[in-house]
Structures are given as structure tokens and as C-alpha cells.
């Protein structure tokens, strides 16, 4: 299902030096804030939720996934060099899955690990670290797939991804409780909450629903991206 050459090209080309800097900045801010808050207020449930959910799962996770998910495909679509991958007798799904592996790996590396570290700092417990890491991991799967699909569908993938994160996940997710059934942020928060706290009332959706929904979205988005690539149009200069 994957192709080593495509993975190699994607790592070299998509995750260049400049993008990696952006990928690093957000996790560094998160860990810095965790250290500061822990030093100032100690272990505090509200502060932990503020940092881990408010910043970690709802800002750092989707934004890092957005950069990783779009840079593995959108840049090549944009400058037209994707043609060299597509003019080959390779299944489009293989191309997309290879790119998804790179995006997912980068997202896990730059979100799940730092969020785990920040969780450990904020809660001082292994359970906290694992809980937030699990939520972040779940989100990484879904977000990477969604942003990869956006790159295959539109040439304005970054803008579209930002709008999705800000409006759907951020604004509407806060205003309309029904959105939780279709919100990656709500799913990852729910899974994290279910591990971190014993209070069942705080979870927007059940962890089982969150995992199944993530699975469906991930497989669906990656498959759709591959199908979309089969119909890739090369628009000429004229």
C-alpha cells in the first residue's frame, strides 16, 4: 500500500527546513507554557484543562496536522511537480497512503509526543500524560487524513483547512453541542478525558464512538483523496 520512493521524495520535498521550523514552534510554546503554569500554580485541574485541551488539543494539534497534512501534497499540486508521480503506473491510492504515512508520522512526532510531555508536566502523573497523548494520537489520525484530502480537492488547502479548524472545530464546536458528533476535536478531547478523569459527565462523546468515528473519517478521507487524484487535472498555461 505504500511506496518507498514516494515516501522518500515526500520527506525530502514536503518537509523542508522552513516548514519544519513552523512544526517545531507550536509544540515548543505548548511545553513552555506547561512548565510556566505548573511552576506558578502547581497541579491544578482547571489550569491543566486550559493548557492541554484549550491549547494542546484544540490549537497545536490541528495546526501542526494542517501544516504536515498539506505540505506532503499541496506544494506538489501547486507547482505542478505532482505530474511526475502521477504519470506513473502506480495506484493513486498507493501514492496517497504513502503521503499519509509521512503526514501522520510528522504529526505524531510534533503533537503526540510534546502533548504527552506537557501532560506529564501539568498533571505530574503517568495517567495524565497517556490520556492526553491518546487523545492527540486519535486526532492526529483524523486531522492528517482530512488535510490530505483537502490538498487533493482544492488548491487552497491551507486556507480551507484554517477555515475548517477555526469555524467548524472552534466556533461552531463551542456554540452547537450537536457538532460534537462530527468534530475531531471533540473526539480527541473525549478520549483524553475518559482516561485522565473518572468524571463521566465531562465527555462530549463516548470513547468508543470517538475511536470508531476517527477510523471511519480516516479511511474515508484517505480513500477519497486517492480517488480524487485519479481525476487529477493538469491545467495548462493557456
Amino acid at each position: 500500500m505504500t511506496n518507498a520512493t514516494i515516501i522518500g521524495l515526500t520527506v525530502r520535498n514536503g518537509l523542508g527546513a522552513r516548514r519544519t521550523v513552523v512544526l517545531v514552534i507550536l509544540p515548543v510554546i505548548l511545553i513552555g507554557l506547561a512548565i510556566t503554569v505548573r511552576a506558578l500554580v502547581g497541579v491544578d485541574q482547571d489550569a491543566t484543562i486550559g493548557v492541554m485541551v484549550g491549547l494542546g488539543l484544540t490549537v497545536v494539534l490541528p495546526l501542526v496536522a494542517l501544516i504536515a497534512g498539506t505540505s506532503v501534497l499541496a506544494a506538489e499540486v501547486d507547482d505542478g511537480s505532482i505530474v511526475y508521480l502521477l504519470a506513473k503506473p502506480i495506484s493513486r491510492h498507493t501514492i496517497v497512503v504513502s503521503k499519509y504515512v509521512v503526514a501522520l508520522t510528522a504529526t505524531i512526532l510534533f503533537t503526540t509526543l510534546p502533548i504527552m510531555l506537557a501532560g506529564a508536566i501539568m498533571t505530574g502523573e503517568l495517567r495524565g500524560a497517556i490520556g492526553y497523548a491518546a487523545g492527540a494520537l486519535l486526532g492526529a489520525f483524523a486531522y492528517s487524513a482530512i488535510f490530505l484530502l483537502l490538498s487533493a480537492v482544492t488548491r487552497h488547502a491551507v486556507a480551507a483547512g484554517l477555515l475548517y479548524v477555526l469555524i467548524w472545530e472552534g466556533l461552531l464546536g463551542g456554540l452547537l453541542t450537536g457538532v460534537r458528533w462530527l468534530s475531531v476535536g471533540a473526539w480527541s478531547t473525549s478520549l483524553a478525558d475518559s482516561i485522565v478523569t473518572d468524571d463521566i459527565l465531562t465527555k462530549p462523546v463516548s470513547p468508543a464512538y470517538a475511536i470508531i468515528a476517527t477510523l471511519v473519517v480516516t479511511v474515508g478521507a484517505v480513500w477519497l483523496a486517492g480517488d480524487r487524484l485519479r481525476s487529477f487535472r493538469l491545467t495548462g498555461e493557456e
Partner: peptide, 16 residues
């Protein structure tokens, strides 16, 4: 896509 075994394409755009 299997037809690309027989096709070589040199696109106009320079980006490689």
C-alpha cells in the same frame, strides 16, 4: 494509470 508504462510525458511547467 497502467497506460503510463507506455507514455512518457514532458510537461511544459518547469517545476521538478
Amino acid at each position: 494509470e497502467q497506460l503510463y508504462r507506455q507514455i512518457g510525458l514532458v510537461p511544459e511547467r518547469e517545476a521538478a
